[in-house]
Simulated scan of single mutants.
Amino acid sequence: MGIIKLIIIVLIVWLGISVWRKFRKTTDNNLSQPSTSKMLSCSVCKTHIPENEAILQDGKVYCSKSCL
């Protein structure tokens, strides 16, 4: 009967640690999410901007409508 109690205790501890790590990982991801977008250089003024904010036209990259 002693070995069964030990196995149950080990499983409970393992489960607790797994849940704690998963919770900690999700809260860490919510606190800081680094930008993963590629930086592009404007064809006119050479300013670097994130790819999702760039204006693409005729194969060239522009940072704003004024550079376009």
Rank of each mutant, 00 (worst) to 15 (best):
V44M: 08
I4K: 14
I49G: 00
R21D: 07
L31A: 07
P50M: 13
T36L: 15
K65R: 06
W14T: 15
P50R: 13
S32M: 12
S18K: 13
V19E: 07
K5F: 07
M39A: 12
M39D: 13
C67D: 03
T26R: 11
I49V: 15
D58V: 00
I8Y: 02
K65E: 11
L31Q: 08
I9M: 03
G16M: 07
I12N: 00
D58Y: 02
L56C: 00
T36N: 15
P34V: 14
S35T: 06
K38Q: 13
A54K: 00
K46Q: 15
T27Q: 14
L11I: 11
I3P: 00
V61E: 01
G2I: 13
V13N: 10
V61Q: 06
Q33L: 05
G16S: 15
V61W: 00
E53N: 10
I3E: 11
M1L: 09
S41E: 13
M39I: 14
M1H: 11
C67Q: 03
K22E: 07
V10M: 09
N52S: 04
S35L: 04
V10G: 01
G2C: 08
W14S: 15
C42L: 07
R24I: 02
T36Y: 14
A54Q: 01
T47N: 01
V19C: 13
E53S: 14
V13M: 10
K60E: 10
I7L: 10
R21Q: 15
I4F: 12
I4A: 13
I8A: 11
I7Y: 04
G2R: 11
D58K: 05
K25R: 02
Q33G: 00
G16Q: 07
C63H: 04
H48P: 00
K60G: 04
R21F: 11
K46C: 09
S18Y: 12
K38H: 10
I12E: 02
K22G: 05
P50K: 13
G59A: 14
T26P: 01
L68M: 07
S35R: 12
R24V: 03
L11M: 12
C67K: 02
K65C: 00
R21H: 09
G2H: 09
E51K: 10
K25N: 02
I55L: 15
I55V: 10
I3Q: 10
F23Q: 09
V13W: 06
K5V: 05
K65N: 10
I17F: 09
E51M: 05
L15E: 05
C67N: 04
I49A: 04
T26Q: 10
C67I: 05
E53R: 12
E53G: 00
L15N: 11
L56E: 08
P34W: 05
I12M: 05
W20C: 07
I49H: 01
V10N: 08
I9V: 08
F23H: 14
F23S: 12
G2V: 09
C63A: 12
L56R: 09
P50W: 08
L11H: 01
L40H: 03
R21T: 08
V44Y: 04
I55W: 07
I9R: 06
K60R: 11
I8S: 04
P50Y: 09
I7R: 03
H48E: 15
L15A: 15
I49Y: 02
L15D: 02
V10W: 03
I7Q: 03
